[in-house]
């Protein structure tokens, strides 16, 4: 997409000027990815609203269930995902200034923080299983496992996408002027990862905090 390259070159300076801002009004990544993101957000919105309604109908059960969750683990996971998202955001800038190696390094850091999330989440599941708690324990844990496991799968998919982006960046594919659409692919992958982060931003307070 020629506009992507145009924006990429424009963003390589520190800040767009006021006159250039109007010209740069473009959606990062592919339009199809944004429709996919909207679909994902809608599914999770239904989950979130369903969880809130179920909690309103079973206040005691949900309070007891939340008391058994590890809030610190949830907090560490939140910080890990926000930090991972930060590294993906600055790796996109590295790509725009044609610094592939720096972009790869930042993507690897993003993957490290994503791995922190994976390890802690698995530990959290294991500790619940050891207490004899599983998806059939009660309505709270059914929804807890459904929502968090569904989000977990999105994290895994996001990590695969980040690895693919890092591989392409390492091979210099985003610097090939004949493959401008590939740069849009990098933006799309980054936006998908930010969506996963955005979902956790809602999921964590809803399930762990309130």
């Amino acid at each position: 997409m020629p506009d992507n390259l145009q924006q990429a070159l424009g963003a390589s300076t520190n800040e767009p000027t006021a006159s250039s801002k109007s010209n740069l009004k473009k959606l990062p990544g592919d339009l199809a990815m944004w429709f996919f993101i909207l679909a994902e957000l809608t599914v999770f919105a239904i989950f979130f609203i369903g969880f809130a309604i179920a909690e309103n109908l079973n206040l005691v059960m949900f309070a007891e269930g939340k008391a058994q969750l590890h809030k610190v683990a949830g907090l560490i996971n939140t910080i890990a995902l926000i930090t991972s998202s930060y590294f993906v955001a600055i790796s996109l800038h590295s790509m725009r200034v044609r610094n592939d190696r720096q972009a790869v390094f930042r993507l690897i850091l993003a993957l490290v923080f994503a791995a922190v999330y994976i390890v802690i989440k698995l530990w959290e599941y294991e500790s619940l299983f050891e207490q004899g708690i599983d998806i059939e324990t009660n309505t709270f844990f059914t929804l807890y496992f459904l929502i968090t496991a569904f989000h977990f799968m999105h994290i895994l998919l996001g990590m695969v996408i980040l690895v693919y982006m890092a591989k392409n960046a390492y091979q210099g594919k985003y610097n090939d002027s004949s493959s401008e659409s590939e740069f849009s692919g990098f933006e799309s992958g980054a936006c998908y990862w930010h969506m996963v982060d955005l979902l956790w931003i809602i999921l964590f307070p809803l399930i762990y905090v309130i």
Binding site: P16, K21, L24, K25, K26, L27, P28, A89, H194, M195
Partner: peptide, 10 residues
């Protein structure tokens, strides 16, 4: 606005 860079998007 910042991470997804939608502040200057349509």
């Amino acid at each position: 606005d910042v991470f997804m860079e939608l502040k200057h998007a349509p």
